[in-house]
Amino acid sequence: MARIVTFFIMLVFWVLISGMFDAFHLGVGVICCLLVAIFSHDLLFYGHPDLLWVRDIFKVLAYFPWLFYQIVLSSLEITYIVLHPRMLEIIDPRLVRFRTRLRNTMARVTLAQSITLTPGTITVNMSGNEFTVYALTQKAAEGLPGEMETRIARALERE
């Protein structure tokens, strides 16, 4: 089942990229997608041999608008700091360590990426369930992990 889904996703991707609709190019595309689907379908559905992810994908899609809102906020904050004439007095960089309660690998990676994209924090290291985060201001350091972890847990963790 995972092979068939992989095949169709790859085929849509091929048509999107190629844009040629004659027999030769479509045939080559079908052959390539078949090979990819047979040999490496487990890369796309890592750890999910069943199709439970279809149910989850809507929850994931609900997470993205909030992430984009956070990115806009973070860029505005960076803009304020960069254009401030006495920048060195505002920023107060520090390293923060915290433990996450997410167990899923995918959820942890999403949390790391989201931390990097959101206000004033970047992930330095992630080993096991311990994150090392570099925060630009004290306010950003205190807000970790906060609301983001809850939202990711709602979107990606399965009970």
């Binding site: 990115i71 973070s74 960076i78 960069v82 920023i91 990097t116 970047i122 630009l136």
Partner: peptide
């Protein structure tokens, strides 16, 4: 403008993502 390497990454990573979008 940022004083050290790590804070430069802040400016680089975030603004580029939003600006590209």
């Amino acid at each position: 403008r940022f004083p050290d390497f790590y804070s430069r990454l802040h400016a680089a990573g975030k603004c580029d993502a939003l600006a590209s979008t």
